[in-house]
Deep mutational scan, measured.
Amino acid sequence: ENVFHPVECSYCHSESMMGFRYRCQQCHNYQLCQDCFWRGHAGGSHSNQHQMKEYTSWKS
């Protein structure tokens, strides 16, 4: 089941984030949609070496 997250992806700027959401544990307010995370995208001061937390629902 695809879950809708009402936040913007920090890389592709999609405002309709579906599926899993990934939030960086080091960068303030840096979040990736499932597609950008799986493709290994990073931007700004974010590094792929940073720990990311996976969210499967909006409330989590």
Rank of each mutant, 00 (worst) to 15 (best):
residue 28 H to V: 13
residue 11 Y to E: 07
residue 7 V to H: 09
residue 49 Q to V: 10
residue 15 E to F: 07
residue 47 S to D: 12
residue 22 Y to K: 05
residue 33 C to Y: 00
residue 26 Q to D: 15
residue 4 F to P: 08
residue 2 N to K: 11
residue 8 E to P: 11
residue 30 Y to W: 03
residue 53 K to T: 07
residue 27 C to P: 02
residue 3 V to K: 15
residue 4 F to A: 10
residue 39 R to P: 02
residue 7 V to Q: 11
residue 4 F to G: 11
residue 35 D to T: 12
residue 24 C to F: 00
residue 42 A to Y: 03
residue 55 Y to S: 15
residue 58 W to H: 14
residue 37 F to L: 05
residue 37 F to C: 02
residue 21 R to I: 08
residue 52 M to Q: 04
residue 39 R to H: 13
residue 25 Q to D: 08
residue 1 E to F: 00
residue 45 S to D: 15
residue 32 L to H: 04
residue 48 N to K: 05
residue 7 V to E: 11
residue 4 F to V: 11
residue 16 S to M: 10
residue 12 C to Q: 00
residue 1 E to K: 05
residue 6 P to W: 08
residue 41 H to Y: 08
residue 37 F to E: 08
residue 15 E to Q: 13
residue 43 G to Q: 03
residue 47 S to F: 03
residue 32 L to P: 01
residue 23 R to F: 10
residue 39 R to S: 13
residue 48 N to V: 12
residue 14 S to N: 11
residue 21 R to C: 08
residue 10 S to A: 10
residue 58 W to R: 13
residue 12 C to K: 00
residue 45 S to E: 13
residue 53 K to Y: 05
residue 34 Q to P: 07
residue 57 S to H: 14
residue 14 S to W: 03
residue 3 V to D: 11
residue 29 N to W: 06
residue 16 S to L: 12
residue 56 T to P: 14
residue 38 W to M: 15
residue 36 C to P: 02
residue 48 N to Q: 09
residue 5 H to Y: 13
residue 11 Y to A: 06
residue 38 W to K: 15
residue 14 S to M: 07
residue 50 H to R: 01
residue 46 H to G: 07
residue 45 S to Q: 08
residue 53 K to W: 03
residue 20 F to H: 14
residue 49 Q to T: 13
residue 34 Q to C: 01
residue 19 G to Y: 05
residue 6 P to H: 13
residue 26 Q to H: 04
residue 20 F to D: 14
residue 28 H to Y: 09
residue 29 N to S: 09
residue 23 R to N: 12
residue 32 L to C: 12
residue 35 D to K: 11
residue 42 A to E: 13
residue 15 E to T: 12
residue 17 M to V: 11
residue 38 W to I: 15
residue 54 E to R: 04
residue 21 R to E: 09
residue 55 Y to T: 14
residue 38 W to E: 15
residue 55 Y to H: 07
residue 19 G to A: 15
residue 30 Y to G: 02
residue 3 V to I: 11
residue 37 F to I: 09
residue 9 C to G: 00
residue 4 F to M: 10
residue 58 W to L: 12
residue 37 F to M: 13
residue 13 H to E: 05
residue 7 V to R: 10
residue 7 V to S: 11
residue 22 Y to C: 03
residue 51 Q to S: 13
residue 31 Q to R: 04
residue 24 C to A: 01
residue 29 N to T: 05
residue 12 C to I: 00
residue 41 H to F: 10
residue 43 G to S: 13
residue 57 S to L: 07
residue 50 H to L: 01
residue 28 H to N: 14
residue 37 F to A: 10
residue 31 Q to I: 09
residue 42 A to S: 12
residue 4 F to R: 09
residue 50 H to G: 02
residue 28 H to D: 15
residue 58 W to M: 15
residue 44 G to I: 01
residue 41 H to K: 13
residue 38 W to L: 15
residue 1 E to A: 05
residue 45 S to H: 04
residue 19 G to T: 07
residue 31 Q to M: 06
residue 15 E to K: 10
residue 32 L to Y: 03
residue 57 S to C: 13
residue 16 S to E: 10
residue 32 L to T: 12
residue 27 C to A: 01
residue 24 C to I: 01
residue 59 K to H: 13
residue 14 S to I: 06
residue 47 S to W: 09
residue 50 H to W: 01
residue 51 Q to R: 10
residue 28 H to K: 14
residue 40 G to N: 07
residue 60 S to N: 05
residue 27 C to R: 00
residue 41 H to Q: 14
residue 10 S to V: 01
residue 47 S to Y: 02
residue 4 F to I: 15
residue 39 R to V: 06
residue 39 R to C: 09
residue 19 G to M: 07
residue 21 R to P: 13
residue 56 T to I: 05
residue 36 C to M: 01
residue 42 A to F: 13
residue 21 R to V: 06
residue 51 Q to H: 04
residue 6 P to M: 09
residue 35 D to P: 12
residue 59 K to Y: 08
residue 22 Y to T: 03
residue 49 Q to M: 07
residue 19 G to N: 10
residue 46 H to R: 06
residue 58 W to V: 15
residue 48 N to M: 07
residue 60 S to H: 14
residue 41 H to S: 12
residue 36 C to I: 01
residue 47 S to C: 08
residue 14 S to D: 07
residue 38 W to S: 15
residue 48 N to W: 02
residue 24 C to V: 01
residue 7 V to I: 10
residue 36 C to N: 00
residue 36 C to F: 00
residue 42 A to C: 06
residue 29 N to H: 09
residue 28 H to C: 08
residue 57 S to K: 11
residue 4 F to E: 13
residue 8 E to Y: 07
